[in-house]
């Protein structure tokens, strides 16, 4: 565990907490893509199956349970408790366009052709593109509330920090995982446009609004 990895994990937890608090306090999930939240739940479910087979550390296990529980809670709040506020007309991204290619790619490019390994690979590929329905929703409505922008910034920062972690681990431990690195780069690149808008607008107190 190095500082980049830990900062990345903190950023990830922070993003999830921001989102849950926003939904809970405003009693609304307006502006949030339920499709992205479902994809994240699928990501955690398929990746953290190893919770039952491999023990790494108490920290890892606690975080895995936390991610599973909070993503489940987010999906519940959006599709059950505050269903009436869910913006499903704008959340029209077709997730099968992400699920199917990720599944096929995981079957072809993986470290080992076993159920656990293919599911892990699938979750890595899916995570890299899971934010697309959310970014699509923001582009369709043309704007995002500040709190949604903070959520996206924290969520995007998490994988960017992991990239630094992988550089560090390669240099110090000679450890690297090409699948994770490739997907992590894709994931971070998808946020670049948003990062630019966040830094130039939201941090200066303006609302995130896309040019018409």
């Amino acid at each position: 565990m190095n500082i980049f990895r830990f900062a990345g994990d903190l950023s990830h937890v922070f993003a999830i907490i921001i989102l849950l608090l926003k939904i809970w306090k405003t009693r609304s999930c307006a502006g949030i893509s339920g499709k992205s939240q479902i994809l994240f739940a699928v990501v955690y479910l398929t990746r953290y199956l190893d919770l039952f087979t491999t023990y790494v550390s108490l920290y890892n296990s606690v975080m895995k349970v936390l991610f599973l529980a909070t993503s489940g809670a987010t999906v519940y709040l959006m599709y059950v408790k505050f269903k009436a506020t869910y913006d499903h007309n704008h959340d029209s991204f077709r997730i099968e366009f992400l699920l199917v290619p990720c599944a096929l790619l995981a079957l072809v490019i993986n470290h080992e052709f076993t159920v656990m390994e293919v599911l892990w690979t699938f979750s890595i590929y899916l995570e890299s593109v899971a934010i697309l329905p959310q970014l699509f929703l923001v582009s369709r409505t043309g704007e995002a509330e500040s709190i949604t922008s903070h959520y996206l910034f924290a969520l995007g920062s998490y994988r960017a920090l992991y990239l630094l972690n992988w550089v560090y681990r390669y240099m110090v431990e000679s450890h690297y995982d090409l699948i994770a690195i490739f997907a992590g780069v894709v994931q971070t690149v998808l946020y670049c446009d948003f990062f630019y808008l966040y830094i130039t607008k939201v941090l200066k107190g303006k609302k995130l609004q896309l040019p018409a």
């Binding site: 550390s57 895995k64 470290h111 080992e112 892990w120 972690n165 995982d177 994770a180």
Partner: peptide, 10 residues
């Protein structure tokens, strides 16, 4: 590294 990389990350 590579095959059977340790999955100690989240």
């Amino acid at each position: 590294p590579g095959v059977n990389a340790k999955k100690d990350e989240l």
